[in-house]
């Protein structure tokens, strides 16, 4: 099968910005839809992989995220906000999958295989001690409620601003802060001095 991934189509030799791509996509230009995917899917899929710790779930959620985003483009009020908007949809999709996992667990089904935990995603250059800390942090996170875990990952793994987390999780800023404090308190018990001190400098 030939290559199906589309590439950004330059307009007059200049790669169009997100707002232009959204406008063209709304006019029905298929290449613009593909260009939006090409430009933002890598970051979205990486985010979903880190959130869900499963490559299969991340792939699935990325597909659903872009189907929803491209279908609902006309609801995007500020076209230039596409990256932020699509990330918010991605976080919603991650939540759906967390909910499904919880349900499957309640019904006694085996859990989703987690093949993309923090330690598994670490670069080759990450040393064994830090990798061991990542294992502990991952296990501690898995014991936390979904909202706390997601808020912590968005803040400390992804580097989201608090307002972005509040927007993505549809929570108030105060609630986000409370969830982060709760997660941080629980993780403080984890013997991961390098990571808890703010990670490697």
């Amino acid at each position: 099968m030939g290559r199906v991934l589309p590439f950004s189509v330059p307009v007059d030799g200049v790669s169009p910005d997100d707002a232009s791509l959204v406008a063209r996509a709304l006019e029905g230009a298929d290449w613009a839809r593909g260009a939006l995917f090409s430009r933002h899917a890598p970051a979205v899929m990486a985010l979903l992989t880190r959130l869900l710790s499963s490559t299969a779930d991340a792939e699935d959620a990325t597909q659903d995220t872009f189907i929803e985003a491209l279908r609902d483009l006309r609801h995007l009020r500020v076209p230039a906000d596409f990256p932020r908007w699509v990330r918010r949809i991605a976080v919603h999709q991650a939540h759906r999958r967390f909910r499904r996992r919880k349900l499957l667990a309640v019904l006694g089904f085996d859990g989703t295989p987690l093949d993309a935990t923090l330690d598994q995603l670490a670069d080759d250059a990450v040393g064994p001690e830090l990798r061991a800390e990542l294992v502990l942090v991952q296990k501690a996170l898995e014991r936390r409620p979904v909202i706390e875990r997601t808020a912590w990952v968005l803040r400390h793994v992804e580097g989201f601003e608090l307002t972005e987390i509040a927007e993505a999780l549809e929570l108030s800023l105060a609630t986000v802060k409370r969830k982060l404090v709760a997660a941080q308190d629980a993780l403080a018990e984890v013997p991961a001095p390098t990571l808890m001190a703010g990670g490697p400098r």
């Binding site: 991934l5 090409s38 899917a41 890598p42 899929m45 990486a46 992989t49 880190r50 490559t55 991340a58 792939e59 990325t62 993309a116 923090l118 598994q120 995603l121 670490a122 670069d123 990450v126 830090l130 990542l134 400390h156 793994v157 992804e158 580097g159 990571l195 990670g199 490697p200 400098r201």
Partner: peptide
């Protein structure tokens, strides 16, 4: 720095995309 800077293996391959 956000931890993702350590997690280079989360970047999807072209084949996956």
């Amino acid at each position: 720095k956000p931890l993702k800077t350590l997690l280079g293996r989360s970047t999807p391959t072209t084949a996956t995309l």
